[in-house]
Design a protein around this nucleic acid. Sequence first.
DNA 1: GCAATTCTTGACACGATAATCATCAATCGG
DNA 2: CCGATTGATGATTATCGTGTCAAGAATTGC
Lengths: 156, 156
Amino acid sequence: MLSQSVGYAACAMGRIAAAGGTPVLIKDIAEDCDIPTSYLAKIVNSLARKGIVNTQRGVGGGVSLARPARELSLFDLCMALDDPIIQPRCMLNTAQCSDERSCPAHHFWKVHRERQIEFLRTTTVADVAAFETHRRWKHLGTPDATPNNRATLPSR
Amino acid sequence: MLSQSVGYAACAMGRIAAAGGTPVLIKDIAEDCDIPTSYLAKIVNSLARKGIVNTQRGVGGGVSLARPARELSLFDLCMALDDPIIQPRCMLNTAQCSDERSCPAHHFWKVHRERQIEFLRTTTVADVAAFETHRRWKHLGTPDATPNNRATLPSR
DNA sequence: GCAATTCTTGACACGATAATCATCAATCGG
DNA sequence: CCGATTGATGATTATCGTGTCAAGAATTGC
């Protein structure tokens, strides 16, 4: 399980990606993704400090992705928001658990965790955008029509 | 990751199993497993209410397993202590995530979670006891010499 | 029955995450 | 410059898991 914050961030980044490059208001993201507005503002601010998004105040402002959605993985979001899911820890919380002194869960957990991180690394905001656009943001059209996706997925 | 409580419980149950049927004091378990005594007392109490262990007050009392260590899985401990790890939830915390309306992580998470639960079901307190007896509780001898293990693992 | 032992139970403390709210600061349009 | 807009920030609250502490209740040995 990802933390609530990263879950929110993933949906929010997907929503921004689906907008195709034009800045989106935190208020609009919050509404479309069912995220508390003030809380989302803090998450966005954290992501802005980490260079994940660009923010702009004032009329016509909003939030936009600092890089193409296909190059922004769930793992990046976990790192930016310090999700404990990426910290290597013993499944049983035993101290002194290592490859040499492995607990009964050590081997399983090692493989299990690697699979999970691989998934987080290969799943991107573009994947979230494609899913949510189809499911909830029908007024935005298909994500394939957005500049971000055209830039990274040329239609040949 | 299991909760701290279940991690403690696993180690504690392993310690009790290694004692071979004679009751073990909470104080002794806490010391051998490096668990805060008062906190362990609450965990043991919860497990006693769920029928996982038997407790006995007074001189000569202590805690003993209510069933053979090989028949007590980590999954049982998770259930007894309500570890959130066993609750089926969407990896991304999205509402309305199901087999029909699956989020981008749904398939991965479903398989991943099933693997994890299978591990918890097949790993028992006897496994923990064998590991810890070798590693930390050398004064207890080998777990194979205990009545509990003899009962479920007849030497042929 | 008394005293020592041992588990039981409730109150409380502490930190982290999640969430709310008010206020500040930057930006734009006029 | 003014005012509306919009994100930034700090104070505060709620909840949960973890952990501590003290008083209580059951059991045993004498």
